[in-house]
Amino acid sequence: MRNIALKLMYNGTAYHGWQVQKNDVTVCGTLERAIAMVCGGEAIHLTGCGRTDAGVHAECYVANFRTRSRIPVDRLPFAINTHTPEDIVVREALEVPEEFNAIGSCLKKEYTYRIYNSRIKNPFYVNRAYFYPKHLDEEFLNRAARAFEGTHDFAAVRSVGTDVKSTVRTVYYCYVTRQSDLLELKVCANGFLYNMVRAITGTVLYAAEGKLTPEDIPLILERGDRTAAGPTVPPGGLYLTKLWYEDERLNG
């Protein structure tokens, strides 16, 4: 059996998230069927680097599977891509050690949340960025975002849904930049809770609306009070944008 890692990207608009679900179309389920066709009908089980929710995108994603197929790894992306929709693309396939696991071996991840900040809507950002018509001060947003950096209990910015042993995570950076009408909130951590990035973004926007201050954020985290933090913003603006592994071939 070979252990194969895939580097891929996808537009998540049409999918009910990454994880296979019995009655919904998912990214993982779609890929598993495509890989099975390439690998002679083998039952394929993909392990992804994380669970992206319905409507969330990935510019960088890693998943691995085991197969008896001897098809060369350099041919796998082209073969798989002939059986996937246009919104899922395998960029590269690599043979990895038996013990490699896409989620367990991942050291840290970066997510980017995009906000289209303009008085007028843009049809090309529908399901690609969160439309916010009131002008936002990116320097103020950045100050609020920076308050999330460090090791904290992030229970105040997660949705109930997935049981975890601990809600403590380390955020290595969290900042906001602007390029014309597009704002980006980037956050890198050693792990993420359910809806954590979308709730962080909502809290930063709450600060911009005067509903709290950047200085309130550490206290909100300390208290673990979800009702004091901002709302969970829509999924279409969220992208998985960078991954780190010990095997640098998988970084991106």
Rank of each mutant, 00 (worst) to 15 (best):
E92K: 13
Y206F: 01
H135D: 08
L221S: 14
H135V: 13
G41K: 03
A199I: 14
R70A: 15
R2V: 03
N11V: 15
R249P: 00
M9T: 15
G191K: 13
Y111L: 09
K121S: 10
A228L: 02
A93Q: 02
A5E: 00
G202H: 01
D137H: 04
E59M: 15
H16V: 06
S180E: 13
E32G: 06
L182V: 09
F140G: 12
A229K: 03
K165Q: 02
A144R: 02
N101Q: 13
A43Y: 14
R178H: 04
R119P: 06
T227G: 01
C188Y: 12
Y113I: 03
T203N: 01
A102I: 02
K121G: 15
G224W: 03
A229D: 02
V27F: 01
E59L: 12
K121N: 11
K22Y: 12
Y125E: 13
R2M: 01
I217G: 01
S105K: 07
D53E: 15
W18Y: 14
T203P: 00
A156G: 02
T227W: 05
R169K: 13
T167N: 06
T241Q: 09
E246I: 03
P214M: 00
I35N: 08
R2E: 01
I120L: 12
N127K: 12
P235A: 10
K242V: 09
A207H: 00
Y113G: 07
V126C: 09
E86R: 15
V25N: 06
I80Y: 09
P123V: 08
T232H: 04
D247E: 05
V164T: 01
V27K: 11
A14C: 13
Y194G: 08
A145M: 02
V176P: 01
G236F: 03
D163C: 14
N195D: 10
R128D: 03
R158F: 06
R226K: 10
G41W: 00
G50A: 09
S118Q: 10
A199P: 04
A189L: 13
K134C: 09
R223L: 05
K186N: 15
F131T: 00
V126P: 03
G12F: 03
I115A: 03
L107V: 06
E209W: 01
I120H: 12
V164R: 05
P133D: 10
D225S: 07
E59H: 12
A144N: 00
D24F: 06
F140E: 14
R146Y: 02
L193Y: 06
A147H: 03
V96S: 02
V171Q: 13
R143P: 02
F154T: 11
N190V: 13
H45Y: 05
R226Y: 04
Y125G: 13
Q21K: 07
D24V: 12
L185H: 07
S159P: 07
T167M: 09
A147R: 11
C188R: 12
A63Y: 06
N117W: 00
L6R: 07
V20S: 13
M9N: 08
D87M: 06
A199K: 10
I88D: 05
S159I: 04
G29R: 08
Y245N: 07
T26K: 08
G210H: 04
R51P: 14
R223N: 01
Y125D: 11
N251I: 08
L243G: 11
C49N: 04
E209D: 07
V187G: 06
G17T: 08
T47C: 11
G191T: 04
Q179S: 11
L136W: 00
L182S: 14
A156W: 00
V187A: 10
V168Q: 08
